[in-house]
Amino acid sequence: MTKSVVNVENVQKIFGKKSENQYKALDNVSFTIKEGEFVGIMGPSGAGKTTLLNVVSTLDKATSGKIEIAGQDITDMKQNALADFRSEQLGFIFQDFNLLENLTVYENIALPLSLQGFSSKKIKPLVTQVAEKLGIKSILPKYPVTISGGQKQRAAAARALVHEPAIILADEPTGALDSKNAHSLMKTMEHLNQYHDVSIMLVTHDPLSASYCERILFIQDGTLYKEITKSGDQQQFHQQILNVLAELTSIQSS
């Protein structure tokens, strides 16, 4: 039996104070992600995707419920512990890359290691290794402004991977990429998942990107609406996703 890396139980997130107009962004959401799984989160805009990601990524606190990542309950952790937890256990890939443009690609990738106090002797081989994995070894000494969007996202992915986190959280990673680069990035992520056992949680609204996942959770109005698992090939899965999305749209418009 494989362990679960993410375990979300009855999570609620309410915005606004009690006296004010309250808004339930997440309502009793529960799910688990097993080690080595590639899970997608989909749903229309405003469904709560980003809120869910923020809560899982410890950037935001859930109003109630329990979240466990790599066996650790993060709901009661203090600020500093959370920061340490993020730097050790989580890897982030954002839509807008979020590379520090005043650092070279190498320095960007090395940052999580530096923060954990790795010696520079150990840092270099690790950075080179992950850069090779992502095919960006040649751009390591460059600054982010001088490389393409696809390369930036790979660099971001390398940074998310370098310290071998328990899970990678990706927020619309292909959002700012053209279809070719998007395809290539998703292929890489699929590869990382399949051959290097990297667990990934991917938030996206792009059905094609989502079709690289093994399992997809759909959320609608803050609740889990449906869950589908890949059974056939990617093409079929893509079609399946489109069908669910069509369902969702018809519910919304009715």
Binding site: L100, N102, E107, L113, S114, F118, S120, K124
Partner: peptide, 19 residues
Amino acid sequence: IRTINEKGLNAFTYAQLDF
């Protein structure tokens, strides 16, 4: 000097200055 630059947040701090 890599041993200095790759220590903690130094890379960022010096980059801020250098940038």
